[in-house]
Design a binder for these strands. Structure first.
Length: 473
RNA sequence: GGCCCCGUGGCAGAGUGGUUAUGCAGAGGACUGCAAAUCCUUGUACAUCGGUUCGAUUCCGGUCGGGGCCUCCA
């Protein structure tokens, strides 16, 4: 099945054709680690995680290389480290660990390579030297700058030309720049700032060069897909392209550029000054990671998405429904052992040899996750209806959930996990007591037990095969 | 000023030149001692004004409204 993706470079949806099907390569711009990731940072992580799942499905588990960097040298990091009185390595190390834990909690698989900028300074210096040699960069007052006019077709990705950029510039032009549009590849560090020795003195890299250097190091001079947030199109990605193409002399840096839209929080632009941003870390204290993930996937990745508590509540309700379908179809076998889902011993799915493509088809159309989710719901309806449930439907359902990265736990863990204040044994004892009362037609006592448990956060459900319980809420 | 996006039923949110999106919420029904869960039925939406068309929510243009980017930013 063809995968179609919207290529920002062409401004159109295109069929994806990898350079090398045995090694599909993509690079996603990762976080700058100076503070907890907010949900806005989580969106690209989740979106591109789904893309990687689809790519692995199409090309094979071992035929995809996913690189997502961590930016661990940056002025914001320097400032924050100083405020907290810790060294930079401590700050970035801690923050990166929390980031990875938070992403894992919302079902994001670790990239194959997670390069850190500080580990690639020599490559950045080498690339900068190469750009100087080729006449695309120059040193001035301890800085090295990329000379934008030296690249005739600069601006293809963002579709803006040099003159427009200068007209729209909001900052004063540094006096050492040959051209107002030139941007920094290397800048000098003061003695109390972190720095590395270089041919231009002790200094540190500019922002854009790190991604060019790390992508080249781990994926080569030209690769398949480069992703990130919409706001990175200009200047970050434009400048990455300029650096990489001018350093290596290719017509492309990456063949496909994908950009996710922005999030708002409770209908407003997330901003530090309004204090209305949610960090993944704090949300996880109150909500299941899968609810956060499902909400992030509930709108198409290129569309704006409002992240709200009401939205989380609905995502949670939707997951309840999907887990219920899983529970209700527990006795349906699915054959095809292969990828073992944590879910249930009989529900393994061979993700490399799928038969049903109902969900995959939606995801292959430029990652149409809302459509994929709606199809998952249709399958859930079937699984909940005895007359329509069958192994093929269940396989498709599980495979789709796997591609979306949800339903990664068991229904019992989902519904009953982490109950506090009462033990499962005590609950079972009360259920038995209530069952006896019901047999004796003492419904007043039965209802009393049920209400009592409900007050303690446990809801009972009488099914055809007996009474089950779940955590309320 | 330049570049770009959006406006779908109570809410969220896909999609399509003529056929049910889906979920949540609401209403009715089935099941249940009563609930819960589940299933079935139900609401007949596409900002506005023109144009193209046999036919437009879907294509084109204008208008109104909202949003993003233009070297901090996912």
């Amino acid at each position: 099945m063809d995968l179609k993706i919207t290529n920002t470079l062409m401004r159109e949806k295109q069929v994806f054709t990898p350079i090398d099907p045995s090694n599909v390569r993509l690079y996603v711009c990762g976080p700058t680690v100076y503070d907890h990731a907010h949900v806005g940072n989580a969106r690209p992580a989740v979106v591109f995680d789904v893309l990687v799942r689809v790519l692995r499905h199409l090309y094979g588990k071992d035929h995809v290389t996913h690189v997502a960097n961590i930016t661990d040298i940056d002025d914001k990091i320097m400032i924050r480290a100083k405020e907290r009185g810790v060294d930079i390595e401590t700050l970035t190390g801690e923050t990166a660990d929390i980031y990875n834990a938070d992403m894992a909690a919302i079902g994001v698989n670790r990239p194959d390579v997670q390069p850190r900028a500080t580990g690639h300074v020599s490559q950045m210096i080498a690339m900068t030297e190469r750009l100087i040699e080729r006449g695309h960069a120059y040193a001035a007052e301890g800085h090295v700058l990329f000379n934008v006019p030296s690249m005739s077709d600069y601006g293809q990705l963002s579709r803006r030309d040099r003159d427009e950029m200068i007209a729209g510039a909001r900052v004063d032009v540094a006096p050492y720049k040959r051209d107002p549009a030139d941007f920094v590849l290397w800048k000098p560090s003061a003695d109390d700032q972190p720095g590395w020795d270089s041919p231009w003195g002790r200094g540190r890299p500019g922002w854009h060069i790190e991604c060019s250097a790390m992508a080249a190091e781990h994926l080569g001079e030209v690769f398949d897909i480069h992703g990130g947030g919409l706001d990175l199109i200009f200047p970050h990605h434009e400048n990455e392209i300029a650096q990489t193409r001018c350093a290596f002399g290719h017509a492309r840096m990456a063949n496909y550029w994908m950009h996710n839209g922005f999030l708002t929080a409770e209908g407003e632009k997330m901003s530090k000054s309004l204090g209305n941003f949610y960090t993944v870390h704090e949300l996880l204290e109150e909500w299941p990671g899968e609810a956060i993930r499902l909400l992030l996937l509930s709108a198409h990745y290129r569309q704006p998405l409002d992240f709200s508590k009401a939205g989380l509540r609905e995502a949670k309700t939707q997951l309840d429904r999907l887990y219920r379908a899983l529970e209700n179809s527990a006795d349906i076998p699915t054959e095809q052992p292969g990828l073992m889902l944590k879910n249930q011993n009989d529900a393994a799915v061979d993700i490399d040899h799928p038969r049903e493509q109902y969900i995959l088809e939606a995801l292959c159309d430029d990652l149409n996750t809302p459509l994929a989710i709606s199809r998952l719901h249709k399958l859930a309806t079937s699984l909940n209806s005895d007359d329509r449930a069958n192994p093929a439907i269940k396989r498709t359902f599980l495979q789709g959930a796997e591609l979306l990265g949800i339903l990664s736990t068991t229904p019992s863990e989902w519904f009953q996990g982490e109950v506090s204040g009462i033990s499962p044994i005590e609950i079972e004892r009360l259920i038995a007591a209530r069952s006896n009362a019901r047999k004796a037609k003492d419904f007043a006592e039965a209802d009393r037990i049920r209400d009592d448990l409900k007050a303690r956060g446990i809801e009972l459900e009488d099914g055809p095969s007996g009474t089950t319980w779940k955590r309320a809420g």
